[in-house]
């Protein structure tokens, strides 16, 4: 395999920052906000979406010359639905509590705009290997935002990361809690996720003036 060509490596790196699916393309917001109260759920969701986007991209790309244009949305929906059913069953089998936390949002991967967006914008016009890379890149870009939001929400909201108490024990008042620090329970609620993403967008656009819209 060797190193990827310059063009191909851009397929992976662009969505991580300049063409980020969540903050720039405005896709996939729903699940980014709803399940990021725990870092573990955020990472599992990111991996699931990346898998569905990458594999779905390859499948659609392989079929791209034989899908009639009138029914292409339906074909895309069927492909995504099948992949998500598989992901859902795998999650239920290997990690039941996590699938309960994610609840309906695993099913909502079907309507995750990133997936349909990439099918329409890329897989229908490009070969399978490049579509695969594009899928990985966009999934990773989505994943980064999820991890950042999940990191702050879980750390500030319950003082834990991945379930490990990193700031000390709130009940026994060790660590940071000995100084009177309290968890900001508000971070665990939905509105704060929106505000955290807004702040991420602010930081991103301040650093790259080209992204500012009028």
């Amino acid at each position: 395999m060797g190193l990827l060509s310059k063009k191909d490596s851009r397929l992976i790196l662009d969505p991580l920052a300049d063409n980020n699916p969540i903050t720039i393309q405005v896709l996939g917001i729903c699940s980014a906000l709803a399940i990021t109260a725990q870092l573990k759920a955020a990472i599992v969701m990111a991996i699931s979406v990346t898998a569905v986007v990458a594999i779905g991209n390859v499948v659609i790309s392989l079929m791209r010359n034989i899908i009639p244009s009138k029914i292409r949305i339906i074909v895309q929906l069927v492909v995504v639905a099948v992949l998500v059913i598989i992901v859902d069953l795998i999650l239920k089998a290997y990690s039941y509590e996590l699938s309960k936390t994610l609840s309906v949002f695993v099913g909502l991967i079907i309507t995750n705009c990133i997936i349909m967006g990439r099918f329409e914008a890329f897989a229908l016009a490009n070969g399978p290997w490049r579509s695969f890379l594009d899928g990985i890149g966009n999934g990773a870009g989505y994943g980064i935002i999820l991890v950042i939001v999940g990191f702050f929400r879980e750390l500030l909201g319950s003082g834990t990361l991945f379930g490990f108490k990193v700031l000390g024990d709130p009940i026994e008042k060790t660590g940071l809690y000995a100084f009177g620090y309290e968890n900001n329970g508000f971070m665990l609620l939905s509105p704060m996720a929106l505000i955290v993403v807004g702040l991420i967008i602010w930081v991103q656009r301040s650093r790259n003036k080209a992204l500012i819209e009028d």
Binding site: L189, A193, V197, E213
Partner: peptide, 22 residues
Amino acid sequence: PPALRGLGITFIITGLMAIGFM
């Protein structure tokens, strides 16, 4: 602020509205 125009401020406002709806 320029970097917040459009999408950023919409997110923050939606967050505040969500707090209101709570």
